[in-house]
């Protein structure tokens, strides 16, 4: 599933100041591609990821996902797009603390309306695939950061999305766990053909990507 950005701008305005976070970006990400977006903090790389993830709307320009102009979609349709075609992995894992690992993975399927037995089976399968089925019944507080991020990956994959959006997924992990996480993401990209868009400021993590784009002050620096 391809992603296309056409002259995308994002301006954050408060009554005191105005921040031009994204300043006219046009780019295309092909289906099955693994792309890393790099840049110093404040360069707008996370904003760009959230714009692609339909969590935020551009001030100007168009984000086209799988040929659909997202600016034309309402909140419910955007929610469905996120639920069924996009998977998110955050730096802070963002698991729901009251739910077990298994239930966290089930959650997107609950929102989709997958029957109980099927979603339990599928969530367990995902945990097994990622190698953490032994912590299925534990809550986020009871497992390590690396394990939490694995649960987050399993959750992101629950509804079999075509695009995985990763916001500094290794930012809170030691380098060994970080590399393991990146390995898992890479596998999903290679074996399931999932498009991966990775935001990072860590060059060693960006190396997992096929293509690296650099961002500075809301603009692309070098488009290959």
């Amino acid at each position: 599933m391809s992603v296309e950005l056409v002259d995308v701008h994002k301006v954050y305005k408060t009554s005191y100041y105005e921040v031009r976070a994204i300043n006219g970006i046009t780019m295309r990400i092909e289906d099955g591609e693994f792309i890393a977006i790099m840049g110093p903090s404040g360069s707008g790389k996370s904003t760009l990821l959230y714009l692609i993830g339909c969590l935020d709307k551009p001030t100007k320009g168009e984000v086209i996902i799988d040929g659909v102009e997202t600016s034309k979609l309402g909140d419910d349709e955007l929610t469905r797009l996120r639920r069924e075609k996009l998977g998110f992995i955050f730096q802070q894992y963002n698991l729901i603390s009251t739910l077990t690992a298994l239930e966290n993975v089930e959650l997107p399927m609950i929102f989709k309306g997958v029957p109980k037995d099927e979603r339990k089976r599928k969530a367990m399968e995902l945990l097994r695939l990622i190698g953490i089925e032994d912590i299925a019944e534990r809550k986020p507080m009871e497992i390590s950061g690396g394990q939490q991020q694995r649960v987050a990956i399993a959750r992101a994959m629950a509804n079999e999305p075509r695009i995985l959006l990763c916001d500094e997924p290794t930012g809170n992990l030691d380098s060994k766990s970080g590399r393991q996480i990146m390995g898992t993401i890479k596998e999903l990209n290679e074996e399931k053909g999932v498009t991966v868009i990775l935001v990072t400021h860590d060059p060693s993590m960006a190396e997992f990507a096929e293509r690296i784009v650099r961002l500075r002050d809301g603009r692309l620096q070098d488009v290959p």
Binding site: L55, D76, T79, R83, I96, L107, P108, F111, A156, N159
Partner: peptide
């Protein structure tokens, strides 16, 4: 708020 944001991000509709 953050938890709500996460749920919305992973596909919970407003009504949920």
């Amino acid at each position: 708020t953050r938890e709500i944001g996460v749920m919305r991000a992973i596909g919970a509709p407003r009504r949920t």
